[in-house]
Simulated scan of single mutants.
Amino acid sequence: MSLTIVSLLPSLQNTNGDAENAAVLAARARWAGLDAVVAAVERVEDLPERVDAVVLGSGSDASLDRSRQALLGLHDHLRRWGTEGVPILAVGTGWELLSWGIELPDGSTVEGLGIVAGRAVPAAARIAGDLVVKASGGLGTLIGFENHARDYVGAEASPIGRVQAGTGNGRGSGQEGVRMGDVLGTHLHGPVLAKNPRLADLMLARMCERAGLDYRPGERTARVDEYAEAARSAQLRAAGVAASAHA
């Protein structure tokens, strides 16, 4: 059996390299001795027969309408995957498009798909810099960088975790992201799965559980994770977060 990771709209939603989260999952699966492929899906006709995980990256505001139109054709599939426990990772505007909606500075609104709770609203100023999050549910500390012009409200009951450095969802919430079952939305760029191997492995474990496979990180995974740990430690120091807090 081959695991299939769907990368949604990579031509529109990859401004920060976030679509490459799919490649991270596929590589780690292969290092564990499993077959894995990445399927680029720009429209519903591109969907493979089997979907084991979904990655949706971030795009520019100029592509919001085009991305939304493309995602509307996949709405029923996204909702079904979410209820069936297929791991879905959405980053930046990809996450915002799965929300209730996006409010723009001119007062107009881009209606979201309603897959996750909350909505994006204009921030007082663009937010950019290191982001460190103490996550719940076995995710440990997540690191990356944030670069967004909107806050996120309405997800206070289901965040990924608490912000240790940076802004996250904003509006004084001290929270970052949204987590609803196996659907995760986040501001973390990086790509987030390359900088946070624990999150990648939890997604892979869930994928394999659903597929009736056993996931055990391979020998090469351990070597690669040494580089990720060095990068994490450097970013934690730059963000002023104590190394002891990153477990």
Results as ranks from 00 to 15, higher is better:
residue 63 S to W: 13
residue 161 G to L: 06
residue 170 G to H: 08
residue 60 S to Q: 12
residue 86 V to I: 07
residue 91 V to R: 06
residue 119 R to L: 14
residue 57 G to R: 04
residue 167 T to H: 14
residue 66 R to I: 12
residue 118 G to E: 08
residue 107 G to C: 11
residue 42 E to Y: 03
residue 57 G to N: 01
residue 105 P to A: 14
residue 117 A to V: 14
residue 51 V to P: 00
residue 99 S to R: 09
residue 40 A to I: 09
residue 165 A to V: 09
residue 160 I to W: 06
residue 104 L to Y: 11
residue 44 V to W: 10
residue 81 W to C: 04
residue 104 L to T: 14
residue 108 S to P: 11
residue 126 R to M: 11
residue 36 A to L: 00
residue 41 V to I: 04
residue 122 P to F: 08
residue 131 L to T: 10
residue 39 A to M: 01
residue 152 Y to C: 08
residue 123 A to G: 04
residue 165 A to K: 06
residue 142 L to R: 12
residue 121 V to S: 04
residue 123 A to S: 05
residue 165 A to R: 02
residue 83 T to I: 12
residue 97 L to T: 03
residue 68 R to Y: 11
residue 145 F to R: 07
residue 33 G to P: 02
residue 151 D to P: 09
residue 101 G to E: 09
residue 149 A to Q: 13
residue 117 A to D: 14
residue 80 R to V: 10
residue 112 G to M: 10
residue 143 I to P: 07
residue 33 G to E: 06
residue 61 D to C: 10
residue 140 G to L: 04
residue 59 G to V: 05
residue 156 E to A: 13
residue 75 H to G: 11
residue 94 G to W: 04
residue 109 T to P: 13
residue 53 A to D: 05
residue 104 L to F: 14
residue 86 V to Y: 02
residue 100 W to L: 15
residue 91 V to I: 13
residue 102 I to W: 09
residue 67 S to N: 06
residue 82 G to D: 03
residue 125 A to D: 13
residue 132 V to Y: 05
residue 119 R to P: 06
residue 160 I to P: 02
residue 98 L to W: 00
residue 46 D to T: 10
residue 135 A to N: 01
residue 135 A to S: 08
residue 97 L to W: 01
residue 146 E to F: 10
residue 74 L to A: 03
